[in-house]
């Protein structure tokens, strides 16, 4: 039982981290609380399904195309919607939420409501770890999660563009005075965050069936992890994902699986009430925006 909790707690944490990474990145780099995050995640799942099943593309072509398409969608959302209301926190929240709902309901209207929509796993089969059978896809999720967190940290700290995005997040006008274009930086962070949401979708969605409601659930998961860990901190994101992932697994194992979804909401309420800036957060902005 303990091995099972440890292994599936880690897997759940990796899923949470991957689904929250894009949201956290966008907020950290551009200050935009992108409530369309869940919709971008879910639409990436449907787009990947269309590439694989309707267009018959091979997996290793469909996945990169899905990630690129999500990146372009994120940039388009910035240029067409967010840019108009940039700097107005509440308007950004309302606008991105409206875009998210529009995307999700578009797929519902298109008839993506049956149980036939699922994505294939990257590697079939399972592995026995300390008597617990773990399928390879879950190990892929853990690996991709660790890799993405490391790559993002390297990107943010050791590349010219990463430094520029961090600079823009800290002081827009000083960044502008040094030649960094703020709209370009924000659009790029939206594109990157959306591409990461798509990557999260293609590696985590094979664990179940793609359904519209997942879009809303993923948004709540991302909000819970980001608020718990604190904004603008990859360490906070990792710790937040681990805490929630294990809390969720323990709840499902020792109490009742039906309470697993409530863990996010309890975490959100507790953190906002006790330490609104999160465990590792420096700013108290998200609670003012959401």
């Amino acid at each position: 039982m303990t091995s099972s909790v440890l292994i599936f707690g880690l897997v759940n944490s990796a899923i949470l981290m991957l689904t929250a990474l894009g949201f956290s990145l966008i907020f950290g780099l551009s200050g935009v609380a992108n409530l369309a995050h869940g919709a971008i995640y879910l639409s990436s799942g449907y787009v990947a399904w269309i590439f694989l099943n309707s267009l018959g593309l091979p997996y290793f072509l469909a996945v990169p195309l899905t990630i690129v398409a999500a990146g372009l969608l994120g940039a388009a959302i910035y240029w067409l919607v967010i840019m108009r209301v940039r700097g107005l926190g509440l308007s950004e929240v309302i606008a991105t939420f409206a875009v998210g709902v529009a995307i999700l309901e578009f797929f519902r209207w298109m008839g993506f409501v049956t149980y036939e929509f699922n994505l294939p796993v990257l590697i079939k089969g399972s592995l026995d770890i300390s008597g617990v059978s773990v399928d390879y896809q879950r190990l892929v999720i853990v690996g991709v999660g660790i890799l993405m967190a490391a790559l993002l940290w390297l990107f943010a700290h050791h590349t010219k563009i990463g430094l520029a995005l961090r600079g823009m997040a800290q002081d827009e006008y000083t960044a502008l005075s040094l030649g960094i274009d703020s709209d370009w930086a924000a659009a790029l962070s939206m594109a990157l965050g959306s591409a990461i949401a798509a990557l999260a979708a293609v590696v985590t969605l094979p664990l179940g069936i793609i359904s519209i409601n997942l879009g809303y659930e993923v948004l709540i998961m991302a909000l819970a992890v980001t608020v718990l860990g604190g904004l603008e901190s990859i360490t906070g994101l990792v710790v937040g994902a681990l805490l929630l992932g294990f809390a969720r697994t323990v709840t499902g194992t020792y109490f009742d699986p039906k309470w697993m979804e409530v863990v996010y909401l309890i975490a959100l309420v507790l953190v906002l009430a006790v330490k609104p800036s999160g465990l590792f957060g420096k700013y108290k902005e998200l609670e003012e925006r959401v």
Binding site: L163, R166, G167, Q170, D171, Y173, T174, A175
Partner: peptide
């Protein structure tokens, strides 16, 4: 007011 990127 000496603006710098304080986290860097």
């Amino acid at each position: 007011r000496h603006p710098v990127f304080k986290d860097n």
